[in-house]
Every structure is written in C-alpha cells, then in structure tokens.
C-alpha cells in the first residue's frame, strides 16, 4: 500500500504501512517559490496533527508546516539542509520528515488525490 493523503494546508502524507512520509504538495511549492530553507524537527520529536512542526522559507515568505497526522519523527530528510531547492524540483519525491504514526485513523480527516485536486482548483481562484 502506498497511498497519498493531503491536508487543507497543503501538506501530504505518503503512507507505507504505519509510516507516513510528510512533505509539501507541488501546489504549495509552486505558490511559495524558490525554497531557501526548511526548518525541520529532530528525530524522536513528537508531532501532533494540526500543529506546526517546522517551516519552509522562500526569500520573502515563510510557511508553517502543519502536521497532517500525529506520531514520532523517525527520520528527517537531511538532503534538504544543503539543497532545499529539491522541494521545487520534485516536492512529492522529496519528503521532509518520516513519521511513525500514533493514530492512523487521523488519515480519514485528510483528502485523497482527486479531492485535493478539486480543492486546489478552488484555492487558485
């Protein structure tokens, strides 16, 4: 199973078993522009759905990262430290944190691919 869910604040959670790979959507990276820095939590930190766990910065904007699911950070994407622009190149492949979910039922509150596409269509109007 490798399903992708999205939040209204444009984070995605790509699910692999009990693991969620969390990043920002392609729509979000586009809106933000050139990413120059990603502020990430540390491994073993707990994150809570709906609360911020970091931020993504472009030159003149910053956007909080809101956790789509709760859990414990088991890995951060170190590559983004030296090369944050990877998010612009491929936001979906370049996840920000890898989280062991504590409450997978939270996924039910998120959107699937097609619902999210529809949501973005309305956002850009």
């Amino acid at each position: 199973m490798n399903q992708i869910f999205y939040s209204e604040t444009h984070e995605y959670a790509r699910i692999d078993g009990n693991i969620a790979y969390i990043g920002i959507s392609d729509f979000a990276q586009h809106a933000l522009g050139n990413v120059v820095y990603v502020d990430m939590p540390e491994t073993d930190d707990d994150i809570t759905a709906g609360e911020d766990f970091g931020a993504v910065e472009s030159v003149k904007a910053a956007s909080d990262l809101i956790a789509p699911v709760s859990g414990t950070v088991i890995e951060t994407n170190e590559e983004l430290i030296d090369n944050p622009r990877l998010i612009n190149e491929d936001a979906m492949a370049n996840w920000i944190i890898k989280v062991e979910m504590s409450n997978p039922s939270e996924l039910e509150n998120l959107m699937n691919e097609s619902a999210y596409k529809e949501f973005c269509k309305n956002e850009s109007h």
Binding site: V36, Y37, A55, E57, S58, V59, K60, A61, A62, D64
Partner: peptide, 13 residues
C-alpha cells in the same frame, strides 16, 4: 537576507 525569519513576514511567529 534571511528576511523570512523577521517580524514583517512571520508576524506573531
């Protein structure tokens, strides 16, 4: 530089 940290962008954050 690094203006995204500052009050005029981050406001209460």
């Amino acid at each position: 530089t690094l203006q995204a940290r500052e009050q005029h962008i981050r406001r209460d954050k």
